[in-house]
Design a protein around this nucleic acid. Sequence first.
DNA 1: GTCTATACGCGGATAGAC
DNA 2: GTCTATCCGCGTATAGAC
Lengths: 200, 200
Amino acid sequence: MSTKKLDEKTILDAAAEEFAEKGFSGARVDEIARRAGINKAMLYYRIGDKEELYRRVILRGQKGMHDAMLKAIEATHTAPETVAAMLAVVAENATENRLTPSIMLREIAGNGKTLPDEGLQGMRKLMDTISSMVTMGVEEGSFRSVDPVTLQFLVTGAVFTLSLTAEMRRRLSPEKPGPVTPSEIAEALGDIICNGIVRR
Amino acid sequence: MSTKKLDEKTILDAAAEEFAEKGFSGARVDEIARRAGINKAMLYYRIGDKEELYRRVILRGQKGMHDAMLKAIEATHTAPETVAAMLAVVAENATENRLTPSIMLREIAGNGKTLPDEGLQGMRKLMDTISSMVTMGVEEGSFRSVDPVTLQFLVTGAVFTLSLTAEMRRRLSPEKPGPVTPSEIAEALGDIICNGIVRR
DNA sequence: GTCTATACGCGGATAGAC
DNA sequence: GTCTATCCGCGTATAGAC
């Protein structure tokens, strides 16, 4: 077994950090090389240009999140359980690897203009998985007949923004930062999404 | 009355579009000048450099959204009415002027690193207004005692992502795009946020 | 006040030595 | 395979004519 794999992971990790922090056009190839501890020429030799770097990083991140979601969902039986599991795994994933939510928010902000085709597919796959869960819940009778698309954006929009702002919120208002850890985020959201805010 | 105001508005409108589409580092000053129908030197003469352009655009956008929110809230009496009004006005505003939600999502993605101080203040003000509405609802007894921060991200995360993806969704799946117009978005979200998804 | 022409640095990409 | 040195275009910013 060669060391190639390990090096590639190091490079992609460095690139992921830089892209997550600065976005595609803001990210600097020099800086990615520096973070990875190699020189720029080597980076081009191993992976390719900036676009290819971005593409690889996105695909890896999306696959990671999707796989984690599928695995978590497999272990559940009822739709509410599935919702909880999905919230938990997405929050977990978004917290430990900022890249995928960061990319998705940026691409949403920019109308998907800079997203490579495969990245768009990946986004659809994530969203379809969420949609299908809603549909299942409606069919099994545990959910009201809500619009899957609305719910899917409610879930991703909230989880992503809460996860990504956790540090910022802790810094800006230490007294009442709101949910910070993945489990706090998942629990707080799960409650509101399932039961709503209106007292009954 | 001079024509200065009109020209400045034209420039800021052009800049807002460009920043919304490409983000700060992706935006091109040349392109902003082209869109505004003036040459670059004139743009620097009238407004200033790229950062100043960005700052002005952000402040104007945040003020517009905040003013609209306050105005809509004034006309309401109960907390649920206020939630509905706020969803409506934010969705309306986010649809006709992509910049503010776009900026906020990008800054969330990048941990607020490129946001000028006044822009951060503006974000807090928007969020505080939402928070106070929740607190009011809890105190008046119409809402369950939910966490204001969670709700505030649930609202903004969902409204922003739904508004910004409206066109994308219509393009990608014309059969079931989900809520597209501001009123569709506000209504769909209002229902889920108030009542939850669990059948009872 | 308005515009053309240009300076200048930054950053992506690669040639070529080893 | 690895690294240094360098190219070159692009984009911000401004000098200077009118």
